[in-house]
Deep mutational scan, measured.
Amino acid sequence: VRQEELAAARAALHDLMTGKRVATVQKDGRRVEFTATSVSDLKKYIAELEVQTGM
């Protein structure tokens, strides 16, 4: 499950970095929206997932 969450989070980051205004991911069973202003929060979430998956 964590691998899927990590892939979704990375895709969301890619979307935001390429101009999409809002990206949505499932985080702990709930839907979370990230915007360009919350990229740093999304990067932290990705880092947490990488630690949890041993990457």
Rank of each mutant, 00 (worst) to 15 (best):
A12H: 01
G19Y: 02
L16W: 02
G54P: 04
L16C: 02
I46N: 01
V51I: 13
A12R: 02
T35N: 09
R2G: 11
V22R: 06
T53G: 10
V32P: 02
E50C: 05
A12W: 02
I46M: 02
R31F: 14
G19P: 01
V1F: 14
T18L: 09
E5H: 08
D41L: 11
F34G: 01
M17W: 04
V22E: 06
E50Q: 06
A12Q: 02
A36Q: 14
G29D: 04
L13S: 00
V1T: 14
L6E: 01
A36T: 10
Q52P: 06
T24Q: 08
L49A: 02
V25C: 07
R31D: 10
V22H: 07
Y45R: 03
T53P: 07
Q26V: 15
Y45L: 11
Y45M: 07
K20C: 08
L16F: 02
V1W: 13
E50L: 07
K44G: 05
A8F: 09
E48L: 10
A12T: 02
G54N: 12
V25D: 02
D15G: 05
K27M: 15
K27G: 04
T35K: 04
A8V: 08
Q26C: 15
I46H: 00
K44C: 09
K44N: 09
T53C: 09
L42M: 01
E4Y: 14
A36D: 07
M17R: 04
S38H: 09
K20W: 03
E50D: 04
K44F: 06
M55E: 12
Q52C: 07
R2F: 13
E5F: 07
R30M: 14
A47W: 12
H14Y: 12
V39R: 03
T24S: 12
V51T: 12
E5L: 14
H14I: 10
Q26N: 12
K20M: 11
T18W: 07
L6Y: 04
H14K: 08
V22Y: 07
V1Q: 13
D28Y: 03
L6I: 05
Q52W: 09
T18V: 07
V32I: 13
V32W: 09
T53D: 09
L16R: 01
L42V: 02
L16I: 08
E33V: 10
E4P: 07
K27P: 03
S40T: 10
L16Q: 00
L16V: 03
E5K: 07
V51R: 15
V32T: 07
K44Y: 06
S40R: 08
R10D: 01
R31K: 11
A11C: 09
D15I: 06
G29T: 03
A12S: 02
E4A: 15
V1E: 12
A12C: 03
L49K: 01
R30E: 11
E4D: 12
S38C: 09
A36Y: 13
G54S: 11
Q3M: 14
L13E: 01
L49H: 01
I46Q: 00
S38D: 14
G29F: 03
R10G: 02
T24G: 06
T37G: 12
R30V: 14
L42R: 00
A36P: 08
A9P: 00
T18H: 14
V22G: 04
A36E: 08
A23D: 02
S40N: 14
S38F: 04
L49S: 01
D15Q: 13
S40D: 15
E5P: 07
V32A: 04
A23F: 02
M55R: 09
D41K: 08
V25K: 02
A23T: 08
I46E: 00
D15Y: 05
L42F: 02
M55G: 12
V39E: 04
A7G: 05
R31Y: 14
T18G: 09
Q26H: 11
T53I: 15
E33L: 06
G19T: 03
Q26L: 15
L13F: 05
H14S: 07
L13R: 00
E5I: 12
K27S: 06
M55W: 04
M17H: 05
I46C: 02
K20S: 11
I46K: 00
D41Y: 07
K43C: 09
S40M: 10
F34L: 04
T37D: 15
Q26P: 06
L42N: 00
D15P: 00
T35S: 08
L49E: 00
L49P: 00
E50G: 04
E50N: 04
A7I: 11
E4K: 13
G29H: 04
G29K: 03
T37P: 04
T37C: 11
H14M: 10
Q26K: 09
K43T: 06
Q26A: 07
G19K: 03
F34K: 01
T18M: 13
V22A: 08
L6R: 01
L42E: 00
S38A: 07
M55H: 11
R10L: 11
L13H: 02
R10Y: 13
F34H: 02
K44P: 00
D41P: 02
H14N: 12
T18P: 00
G19C: 05
E48M: 09
L49M: 05
S40P: 11
M55K: 10
D41C: 11
Y45Q: 02
K20Y: 04
T24P: 04
H14A: 11
Y45W: 15
R31V: 15
M17V: 08
E50I: 08
D41F: 07
G54T: 06
I46Y: 00
T35I: 04
Y45D: 00
Q26W: 15
K43P: 00
A7E: 10
D15E: 13
T37Q: 14
L13M: 05
T37L: 11
L13G: 00
A36C: 14
D28P: 03
G19A: 03
Q52F: 09
A8P: 01
T24R: 05
G29L: 03
T18N: 14
F34V: 03
T35G: 05
K27W: 04
E4R: 15
V22T: 13
K27Q: 10
M17Q: 08
A12M: 03
R21V: 11
S38R: 06
D41N: 06
G29I: 01
R21P: 14
T18C: 12
G19I: 02
T18F: 07
A23R: 03
R10A: 04
M55S: 12
L42K: 00
D41S: 08
T53A: 15
Q52I: 14
A36F: 12
A36M: 15
T37A: 15
T37S: 14
T37F: 08
G29A: 03
V32R: 05
A11R: 14
E50F: 05
K27R: 15
S40L: 11
D41E: 14
Q52Y: 10
E48D: 10
A7M: 12
A36H: 12
A8R: 11
I46R: 00
T24L: 07
V1L: 14
L42D: 00
L13W: 04
D28A: 05
A9T: 02
R2I: 13
F34A: 01
Y45A: 02
V25A: 04
D28L: 03
L13Q: 01
K20N: 07
R30D: 06
V39P: 01
A11W: 04
I46D: 00
V32Y: 09
A8D: 07
H14E: 08
T35W: 07
E5N: 07
L42G: 00
K44E: 09
S38Y: 03
A47C: 10
I46W: 01
R21A: 15
A23W: 01
L49V: 03
R2S: 09
V22F: 09
V32N: 03
T35Q: 05
E33P: 03
K27H: 06
V32H: 07
E33S: 07
G54H: 10
Y45E: 01
L6M: 05
A36S: 11
T18Y: 07
V22P: 03
E4F: 13
H14L: 10
E33I: 11
D28W: 00
V32L: 11
E50P: 00
Q26S: 10
R31P: 14
D15R: 08
